[in-house]
Amino acid sequence: MDIVDILLSASFWAAAIRIASPLIFAALGELICERAGVLNLGIEGIMVVGAFAGWMTVYSGGGLWAGVGVAMLAGMLFGLLHAVLTVPFGLSQHVVGLGITMLATALTYFSYRLALPEVTSPPKIEAFQPLPVPVLSDIPVLGPAVFSQTPLTYLAFGLVIAVSVILYRTPLGLALRAAGENPAAVAAQGLSVGAIRIGAVMAGSGLMALGGAFLTMSAFNSFFFEMVNGRGWICIALVVFGSWRPGKTLIGAILFAAFDALQVRVQQTPLGADLPYQIFLMMPYLLSILALVVMSRRAQVPAALMVPFNKGER
């Protein structure tokens, strides 16, 4: 199959949108944290927690949306731990974030082994099914690609709009952005920088967990070790690529996912058969690094990112 044929097929774009969905959730989550001034390197581990919590809820008899709720709550709990250590205590966001990733991953694997001591092939769940949107799903190409996805994908796109509106059109969003740009000004307005940042990290971590839950509840339908596989780190690159803006981050996630979907398809062509498959698997990571190099010069980094705020100190 020719690459042009691939790019014009609806199934290719459907795959790209599906691959983009977990990245959209998690990258939005990271964006919210960073906009408030906190780098959250716990993202990778929080996605693991979300993937497991959502799957486990459904596996033990809960509903799909209950699974989504449990995953988000679990993510927010780790977000709270991250926020308490980095905001009021002002500890290194690098060290705490990596520690949270290690702790969250280890606790998840521990729980999985306790819950299912002797399984060799991970059990599947009845996951979210595609829900074609009436009328819209009949549009050629666009219909099957965008409007025949699972409900979680629609939620991801809805959240991009919601987060944009909240960030740029509400007092809450203004306060959140200010906490990441000029916390002293926020404090001068009588608002609590600490409370805004803790709230932002918890909300963002909830979204990261939702991104993880997408993997088990809408993509692979079961939980296995190392399934997040660096997606969290890629999301951090996507936020930089998107200059800390929800819309641009969405575009970055879709471009990235399209590329990922393309490499899977090129692997099956005669060209792909000649190259080691590892070359293709490397591409997403190399592409993320390239995106960082291209965008870092122009990036509008939140001015107070990674700067702890201790009221009364100057």
């Binding site: 690098h94 660096g230 590892q278 698997l281 190399l286 690094i289 960082l292 190099v293 010069r297």
Partner: peptide, 19 residues
Amino acid sequence: FGVDEVVTTLLLNFVVLLW
């Protein structure tokens, strides 16, 4: 280029392992 080394070193772990 001012690229944050946290993310690039993390991503390179995956690249090198595949290599």
